[in-house]
């Protein structure tokens, strides 16, 4: 005879596991929030200064926020057009058999751990930049942007190609029958149809780029300065690279540690926002 207690017991065990899993992000958020209280209350608006000098009680994180923004915008401005036209080439011009091979290569690249991109950046990209631009060190915001572009490119091409491939051929046939050539079909029909999906994909890429640490940390120069806008060829710092490099150097009870936690909390904001905006996550499905 099945016992009611056993039934209930199973339900509670499963329910508890579910609760643990579902509450994880909330727990993480709360822990970070509590620990960053000091930063918000004691430093307050001082966080938005451009000087980071804990010894002199300066806790401005604007340089890091700016660094993150510059690096991500640079990466997107390179990767988005490149990915868009590559995806169009793959779905509209390349025969199916080739397409599978190329997409597999893209998947391989998307799975490479970011520390390895970091190694590539430090050993190959930075020296190359030193040569090309005749600068003393290649560890710059520019290097960070380029490396990030390389990292988000395969995923973007793959996702965008999926979007274009899934547009039924009837649309193309109908456009052709009206006398449009292939390029006109692409720009007047296929791209407008894919706008909203494409936008989601760009947001996803942006989210990944903002959270990237290992690769950026190694090539960015890790200098807490607010660089001249016209010189992305100067070293800088992003939120993630600052955390990666220096968190271990600060004492747990110090204000600067709390400010760092606040920065980690700031990193959570895009993730949560994008979680609201993007209903379907590719990695999971």
């Amino acid at each position: 005879m099945p016992s009611c207690r056993k039934e209930l017991g199973l339900k509670y065990v499963l329910g508890l596991s579910f609760f643990v899993v579902a509450s994880m992000p909330i727990i993480i958020f709360l822990v970070l929030l509590i620990q960053s209280k000091r930063a918000f209350f004691e430093v307050g608006w001082g966080l938005f200064s451009t000087t980071w000098f804990p010894a002199g009680q300066e806790y401005g994180i604007l340089a890091m926020l700016y660094g993150s923004l510059v690096v991500v915008l640079l990466a997107l401005s390179i990767a988005v057009p490149l990915a868009l036209f590559s995806a169009l080439a793959l779905s509209e011009f390349i025969p199916k058999s080739c397409r599978l091979v190329i997409k597999s290569l893209l998947e391989i690249l998307a799975g490479i751990p970011s520390i390895i991109y970091g190694l590539l950046g430090v050993v190959i990209l930075c020296p190359w930049l030193e040569q090309v631009f005749d600068i003393s060190t290649g560890r710059t915001l520019f290097a960070g942007g380029l490396l990030l572009a390389l990292m988000i490119l395969p995923m973007m091409i793959s996702l965008l190609e999926d979007v274009f491939s899934q547009i039924p051929n009837e649309y193309r046939d109908n456009a052709s029958s009206l006398g449009l050539n292939k390029s006109q079909t692409i720009t007047s029909l296929l791209i407008p149809i894919s706008k909203s999906h494409g936008f989601n994909i760009v947001l996803l890429a942006m989210s990944k780029a903002l959270g990237e640490t290992m690769a950026v940390m190694l090539v960015i120069g890790c200098v807490d300065q607010f660089p001249n806008f016209w010189l992305p060829l100067s070293a800088g710092q992003t939120v993630t690279s600052k955390l990666g490099r220096d968190l271990g150097n600060y004492s747990f009870y110090s204000i600067e540690f709390s400010v760092m936690i606040a920065m980690a909390l700031i990193l959570l904001i895009p993730t949560i926002l994008f979680g609201f905006i993007l209903r379907n996550g590719r990695d999971i499905k």
Partner: peptide, 9 residues
Amino acid sequence: ILNGIPSIV
């Protein structure tokens, strides 16, 4: 959200 949290966090 949990899946999208950056590794550094």
